[in-house]
Amino acid sequence: MATSPTRTDARRPGRWARLQARSIEQLHVRLESLIVLIALSTLMAILSPYFLSVSNFLNILLATSTIGVLAIAATFVLSSGGLDLSLGSVLGFSGVCGAAVAVKLGAPMPIAVIATIGAGALAGLVNGLIITRAFVPAFIVTLGMLGIARGLALVISDGRVIYGLPNAMVYLGQGRPFGIPMPVIIFIVTAIVTHMVLAYTRYGRHTLAIGDSENAARTSGINVDFHRLTLYVLSGGLAGLAGLLFATRINSGDPTAGIAYELTAITAAIIGGTNLFGGRGSILGTMIGALIMGVLQNGLNLLAVQSYYQQMAIGGVLILAVFIDQYQVRKESRI
């Protein structure tokens, strides 16, 4: 009885809490997620000698890059109090669009790249317009889009994988300048830019404020509806970028690409400290969340755990992360 967790906390007055607050304020990162990442990595290093090699590290980053970009999209939308369940489908849809433009229409690489990202942004625009103009809840609209975008991907590709992207495009997925995989470079650059946007620009601060209190944002003169719209376009565009990374890595547009990826992306964002109900979130935190997912998957692979179980592990981690978050919120507000 005397060693319940709350008692232990009470004996260390505020030190841990202060450290947590400092970490969030200055690094925009939750300390717990960093500790989980380190602990998980240590565990994997002990379990598998191969884990701590440079090539495995790049493997993890490469495997994380697609999901990581999707998780960035999830972070923007979730921290604004929204939700985008269509991320995985839009990834598949935009990859197919890009492949169709490049292979079937024979368009040059820049056009195909723009088409891929643009297809995602367009899907996001449709989401955003319906959510902000027709007042249909984001949960329903993006759930609908999950089906629509996947269906469109199958229609456009006639249900078949579109092979044979031009070399210039494949380089984006398979090139290795300085030995570093291109997707990793694109992912890290995207993460840095979006981190700056969310943490340090007015756009980012308004995103969090809208998620925190729509009323506060409106009374302060923020154009909430338009801001929301841009967030869904951004989310779709990032899903398009993820679709580009995916397609160019496998050198084809696969209409079944990214199924259930939104699960991992949202999980990564929430493990990284994004508030499921809005008002809090950072890309740096999400990167740590995505790396936790990456290390977990990589470790399970190294330990030869079947992929079916991996899917279960991801779902379990999502529920656990939200549980811990809610537990802390309840503790703070002393309910």
């Binding site: 404020a209 925190d212 209190s213 506060a216 008002g279």
Partner: peptide
């Protein structure tokens, strides 16, 4: 109702 953003 003050219209504050409570987490900020």
């Amino acid at each position: 109702d003050l219209a504050l953003a409570k987490q900020q």
